[in-house]
Simulated assay, not measured.
Amino acid sequence: MRPMELFRAFTLGFAVAGAAFAATVPSRAQTPARLDKVSFGTNWVAEAEHGGFFQAVADGTYKNYGLDVTIVPGGPNINNRILLIAGKLDFFMSANSLQSFDAVANNVPVVAVASMFQKDPQVFVAHPESKVTKLEDLKPLTLFVSKEGMPTYYQWLKSEYGFSESNVKPYTFNAQPFLADKKSAMQGYVTSEPFAVEKQAGFKPTVVLLADYGFNSYSTLIETRRETADGKPDLVQRFVDASVIGWYNYIYGDNRPGNDLIKKFNPEMTDDLLAYSVAKMKDYGIVDSGDALKDGIGAMSDARMASFFEKMVRAGVVRSDIDYRKSYTLRFANKGVGVDRRPKN
């Protein structure tokens, strides 16, 4: 999953392909007849960045909250968000806050109810020879940026840090152009691209996480339709709470059940990449940092949303006249669920 690369406007039409996969395990405590059936769509193929959700299925957490959850994986030609809007899914894993703002701009009746990632994992990776130590050091380098990144986070880089488009080249999800040019940097995801570079080229790249320089979008948000949030608040609360517990268990506990299920859904996933991804999520505070330290994983705040919205307006990414406050609700987050599962040391 690469949140900024997967940014999609609601007004674009995508072909919906692929089948739904049921991700359920037998429950010893409850019978399926007593569980509320829930469908949850991700925005990419199964990977560690979705780990808490798979963990909650695999270790029975969802069932303990009275839920029979079916996970519907995304992929290159699958738009699960359209299925959410159409009422075919109950919940969707949204990439970032920009998608939430876009929903308001296009009068799409969905709302973000929790954010599993406190930091957007978007990064640039650079060669050690380029001597990059901070974000500004990237400016003179050739920058490989995707077509989805240019109208989103790169506009923020231009607005806030004075980056130019003159040295940008297209990023096509192929690391070879970056590897061949030591005076270049490549966009990526903190939990995957650095690992791929190490494997392919045998060196450890310099990693610059945009979130550490003010790109304060939430990421990996749980979205639902407004009618669901308003009409079935208990169901939404249970799904949010169980997902939060799943993430605590995945990050800090025995995550083998979640990883086994991820590999069942995505046989190409490897144990070493899963371990690397989890380690980086912990090292960089992707899941558990900031407001989550007090309010629990999934935390969101009005101040944070306002700050990011203002930055995106200054960058020309979103219109200033939309009511961004309609894009989310704090009704289901910030309850401190699961904080006791965080290691004390």
Rank of each mutant, 00 (worst) to 15 (best):
V16Y: 00
G18F: 02
G18C: 06
A19F: 05
F21R: 13
A22L: 08
P26T: 07
D36V: 10
F40N: 00
A46Q: 06
A48F: 05
E49N: 10
G51D: 01
G52T: 03
F53I: 15
D59I: 02
G60R: 07
D68S: 13
V69F: 07
V69Y: 03
V69E: 03
I71C: 03
P73L: 04
N77G: 04
N80T: 01
N80M: 03
I82K: 14
L83V: 01
L83H: 06
L89N: 03
F92Y: 15
S94E: 08
S97M: 12
S100L: 13
F101A: 05
F101V: 07
A103K: 08
V104A: 09
V104Q: 06
A105C: 10
N107K: 14
P109V: 04
V113F: 04
M116Q: 09
F117S: 01
Q118K: 05
K119M: 06
P121H: 08
V123S: 04
F124P: 04
H127K: 10
S130A: 15
K131Q: 15
V132Y: 03
V132M: 08
E136Y: 04
L138I: 09
F144W: 12
K147R: 14
E148P: 00
G149E: 03
P151E: 12
T152D: 11
Y153F: 15
